[in-house]
Design a protein around this nucleic acid. Structure first.
Length: 746
DNA sequence: AAATCCGGTTAC
DNA sequence: GTAACCGGATTT
C-alpha cells in the first residue's frame, strides 16, 4: 500500500473513508499542478458479513461504540497502516463498509437513516455522532462528506447536509500511473475538498450522495426555506449548486451555467426568439432569456433536447449531472414511473430473473429506497406538504408490494447474518454524469459496439467506479434520480435472497453478472439490471480486513487473483485478437506470472469484479464482451474517448482501439504503460491518460461530404492541441495540393 | 447603469 | 402542462 498517511472515517454504519490529503507544505495549487486531471472520486461501499467483521475484530474495540441500533454501527477511526512511501499517488480508492442495516423508518415509514460520509477532524471526534440511543438517526446525526473545504464537522450542521450530502470522494490519482500522492497527515483536516486541493470550480457539480440502499446521483438544489436558513446554508455550502469561487459573491436563487459545455461556450445565435428579444439585437427585452443555443447542457439538460430530439429516448448529449427538479413534479413523475414499471415491466422481468436466480424469486422492490429518495427530497424541500403526501402515498403503496418487502425490512440481526450484499456500480465523480445516463449512455454505446449487449448469453457488466452493496438482501429498486427535466430512469435490481441461495454458492455460477433488460417506461428508457449477488463469504479475498493499507487496487487485484506478486514484472504472452497485426502490442495489467490459462472467463469476471470496486475515471464502464474480453468503454458522449475501447484479454493483457482501429504500438500511451502498468490502479491511470487525449480529427465525425479519411498511419489519439495527427495532417496537405493542382489544370 | 438571465408567476 | 412574461439578482 502506498499510503503515506491514511485516515479513516468510520461512521454510523461503519463507514470507513480513506482520504488523501496534502502534504504539510502542499497547497491546492501544488496538487492541481501535479494532477490536473484529478476530478473523480469513488466510494466503495462494501458490506462484509458479520462473521468477517468479527474476524476482523471490529466488535468490541476499545474506541468503538456500538449503539443499541445495529444500524448505527460503529464509529471509529483506525490508525492507518502505512507502507510504501512513494512520492505521489496514482490512484486512490475509498472504501466504506456498511456493517448493518441502515434503515429505520419513522412514524411515517420513511427511512430516515441515511448513510453519509462525513469528515471528522479528530480520531474520535465523531464517535458520538451516531450515538442515537432512541434508535433513530436524526438528520443532524447524519454525516456529510463533501468537497467543500469550509464545511465544519459539526453534527448539527444540518444545513450543510442539504447539499453537502453530495458526498464526493476524491480520487486523487495522478496522471502518472506510477506515482502516488503523498499521504496526508493525521490530525489535519479531513475535508476531502480541502485535502485534495480542489479548486472551487472543481468542487461544484458534485453529484452524489450516499444513502442507505441507494445511490442518488443528482445535482443539489437550493433549499427552500427561510432566508436565514438559506443564508446559513449558503454560507456553509456555497449554495451547493454553485460553488462560488473564492471572493466571489454568493449568488442567490440562481443556478449557474457550467460554463464548460458546448452550449455555454457558444455565442448568441442572434436568430432565436430570445436573441431577437435582446436589446443588442434590437429586441424589446421582454423575454429576457438567454439564447436557446447557449442554454447550459448541464443546468438545462432536457428542455432543449425535448424540442430537438423529442423522439429520441436518449439524450442528445449527456448532461453533466443528475440535476434536481422541484419536488412535486419530480415525485409525481417518479411515482408515475414507478407505478408504470411495476405494472408493466416487472412481471416479465421477474420471470426472467426467476429462471436465473432460482426458486425464490423476489421482486426487488425496495420501497424504502424510493421512500428514502423522497425523504431526501423532502429534506430539501422541507415543509412541502405535497411531498409528504406523495411520501405517504408511497408508503401506502409499499403495503401493496410483494411479500418480500417484509424481508426487506427484516430485522437487523437477520439481515446482518443472512444477507448477501448486492452491488451496484454507479459513477460518482465530479463530471456529473447521472447514473441514469451512465446506464443509458453505456447501453447506447454498447449497442453500437458490436453487440455487446445481449450477446449470446453474455452479460453486460457495468462498472463505473462506484460500488455499493446495499445492506438489504431483498430486492431493491434503485431509484436513480433523474436529471433535471429528464425522464426518470431507474434500474431495478433483481436478486435472490441468501436463504434461497445459501452462503456457499458454487463458483460455477458466475458471481457477478448483470443482465440489463431494456424497456421503455412511460416517458423514457429504463433498464432492468439483474444482479447476481456476491456471496459475502467469497468476498473475503477482496474484503481484506479494514486496514487502509489494503485498499489499493493492486492489493485487491493480487488478492483476488490469488497472487502476491509485486506485479512489476510480467512476462506474459499476450493474447491479441487474431485479426490484429502481430506487431501490435498488448500490455499486462496485473503483474505476476500469469499464464493465459489462468484467466478464462472466470478471470475476466474477477477482473470485472475488481473494476467495479476500484475507481474508474468518469463514465468509463467495464463490460464483458465477446472474445471473451473485458472492455472498458467511455460512455460519455462528451468525452473524446467515446469511441475508445480498452480491451482486456483473459490473460489481462490489453490493447486499445479507437473506432475499431487499433492504437498504434508506437503510441505514447503504449510507451508510457508498456512496462509500468502493473495493476489496476494503473489501468485507471491509463484511462485518465486517454482522457487527456483527443481523437484525431480525421477520425471524428465524418460527414458524407467529407473527404478526409484517417491516414494509414493515423495516431488515432492525439493531444488536444494537435487536433490532427501528423500522418493525417500530411496526407491532408497532400490532398489539398493535389486539389490545387487539379484546379490549376482546369 | 446596462446587460444578462434565473426563476417565480401568469396566461393559455 | 407548457409557454410567455417579467421581477430582480447578478454580472459587466
Amino acid at each position: 500500500m502506498d499510503l503515506e498517511q491514511h485516515d479513516e472515517l468510520c461512521l454510523g454504519a461503519r463507514v470507513e473513508v480513506t482520504e488523501t490529503r496534502r502534504e504539510k507544505n502542499g497547497t491546492e495549487e501544488h496538487w492541481r499542478k501535479l494532477f490536473p486531471n484529478i476530478k473523480d472520486c469513488t466510494v466503495v461501499i462494501v458490506r462484509p458479513p458479520l462473521e468477517q467483521l468479527k474476524h476482523w475484530g471490529v466488535a468490541g474495540r476499545g474506541k468503538q461504540k456500538r449503539t443499541p441500533n445495529l444500524r448505527a454501527g460503529w464509529d471509529q477511526t483506525l490508525a492507518p497502516k502505512l507502507h510504501n512511501r512513494e512520492r505521489r499517488s496514482a490512484s486512490f480508492v475509498k472504501r466504506v463498509r456498511i456493517q448493518a442495516n441502515l434503515f429505520l423508518e419513522d412514524e411515517l415509514e420513511r427511512p430516515h437513516s441515511r448513510l453519509r460520509l462525513a469528515h471528522c477532524t479528530g480520531v474520535t471526534s465523531d464517535s458520538t455522532n451516531f450515538e442515537d440511543n432512541d434508535g433513530n438517526c436524526q438528520p443532524k446525526m447524519d454525516h456529510s462528506y463533501c468537497l467543500q473545504g469550509d464545511v465544519q464537522d459539526t453534527p448539527d450542521s444540518s444545513s450543510q447536509q442539504q447539499d453537502t450530502r453530495l458526498q464526493i470522494c476524491c480520487e486523487d490519482r495522478g496522471r502518472d500511473g506510477n506515482t502516488r500522492l503523498p499521504r496526508p497527515h493525521r490530525g489535519a483536516s479531513l475535508c476531502p475538498g480541502d485535502c485534495l486541493g480542489f479548486p472551487p470550480e472543481e468542487k461544484k457539480n458534485i453529484p452524489s450522495m450516499v444513502g442507505g440502499a441507494q445511490w442518488v446521483l443528482r445535482r443539489s438544489q437550493l433549499k427552500k426555506g427561510s432566508d436565514e436558513e438559506d443564508e446559513d446554508f449558503k454560507m456553509k455550502t456555497g449554495t451547493g449548486m454553485v460553488e462560488p469561487a473564492a471572493g466571489e459573491p454568493l449568488r442567490n436563487k440562481r443556478r449557474q451555467a457550467c460554463g464548460l459545455c458546448t452550449a455555454c461556450l457558444r455565442k448568441d445565435c442572434g436568430d432565436c426568439i430570445y436573441c431577437r428579444d435582446m436589446r443588442k439585437f434590437g429586441g424589446p427585452s421582454t423575454k429576457r432569456q438567454k439564447c436557446v443555443h447557449r442554454r447550459c447542457l448541464v443546468v438545462h439538460p432536457k428542455k432543449d433536447l425535448k424540442m430537438e430530439v423529442t423522439d429520441s429516448p436518449k439524450p442528445r448529449e449527456e448532461t453533466a449531472t443528475a440535476a434536481t427538479r422541484t419536488l412535486p413534479l419530480h415525485l409525481s413523475r417518479w411515482r408515475r414511473w414507478r407505478e408504470n414499471v411495476e405494472r408493466k415491466e416487472f412481471c416479465s422481468s421477474v420471470k426472467k430473473s426467476g429462471k436465473m436466480w432460482g426458486s425464490k424469486m423476489i421482486k426487488l422492490e425496495h420501497p424504502r429506497v424510493g421512500n428514502k429518495a423522497m425523504n431526501e427530497e423532502e429534506e430539501q424541500e422541507e415543509g412541502t406538504d405535497k411531498a409528504q403526501q406523495v411520501m405517504k402515498k408511497q408508503t401506502e403503496t409499499k403495503g401493496e408490494l410483494s411479500e418480500d418487502q417484509s424481508e426487506a425490512g427484516m430485522d437487523e440481526e437477520e439481515e446482518e447474518e443472512g444477507t448477501e450484499p448486492m452491488q451496484l456500480n454507479l459513477t460518482l465523480n465530479g463530471s456529473h454524469l447521472s447514473s441514469a445516463l451512465v446506464l443509458d449512455s453505456a447501453l447506447s454505446s454498447l449497442s453500437g459496439l458490436s453487440g455487446l449487449l445481449h450477446q449470446g448469453g453474455q452479460f453486460l457488466h457495468l462498472s463505473t467506479g462506484l460500488t455499493f452493496m446495499p445492506p438489504a438482501v431483498t430486492p431493491a429498486v434503485v431509484i436513480l434520480e433523474p436529471k433535471e427535466e429528464e425522464d426518470l430512469v431507474a434500474v431495478e435490481l433483481y436478486g435472490r435472497s441468501s436463504a434461497a441461495e445459501g452462503p456457499m454458492r458454487e463458483r460455477a455460477v458466475p458471481r457477478e453478472e448483470e443482465l440489463f433488460l431494456e424497456g421503455v417506461s412511460e416517458k423514457g428508457k429504463y433498464f432492468d439490471m439483474e444482479v447476481q449477488l456476491t456471496n459475502p463469504n467469497q468476498e473475503t479475498l477482496t474484503l481484506s480486513p479494514p486496514t487502509p493499507s489494503d485498499i489499493t487496487t493492486a492489493k485487491v487485484a493480487n488478492d483476488v487473483m490469488g497472487r502476491g506478486c509485486d506485479a512489476t514484472t510480467c512476462d506474459t504472452t499476450c493474447d491479441r485478437p487474431e485479426s490484429l497485426p502481430v506487431s501490435w502490442g498488448s500490455y499486462n495489467l496485473v503483474g505476476g506470472a500469469v499464464s493465459p490459462g489462468d484467466f478464462g472467463g472466470c478471470g475476466l469476471l474477477h477482473l470485472l469484479e475488481l473494476l467495479r470496486r476500484i475507481v474508474l475515471p468518469a463514465h468509463w464502464v467495464g463490460v464483458l464482451a465477446d472474445g471473451p474480453e473485458v472492455q472498458l468503454l467511455q460512455c460519455s458522449r462528451l468525452s473524446a474517448m467515446t469511441d475508445t475501447i480498452v480491451h482486456i484479454r483473459p490473460n489481462l493483457c490489453f490493447y486499445i482501439t479507437v473506432q475499431n482501429l487499433l492504437l498504434p504500438d508506437s503510441h505514447r500511451v503504449h510507451q508510457d504503460y508498456t512496462h509500468t502498468v502493473s495493476h489496476l490502479s494503473q489501468l485507471v491511470s491509463l484511462l485518465l491518460d486517454l482522457e487527456s487525449l483527443t481523437v484525431c480529427k480525421s477520425l471524428k465525425v465524418q460527414f458524407p461530404t467529407s473527404l478526409q479519411v484517417p491516414s494509414f498511419d493515423c495516431h488515432l489519439l492525439v493531444a488536444p492541441s494537435c487536433i490532427t495527427c501528423l500522418p493525417c495532417l500530411l496526407e491532408e496537405d497532400e490532398e489539398e495540393e493535389e486539389e490545387g493542382n487539379e484546379e490549376e489544370d482546369d
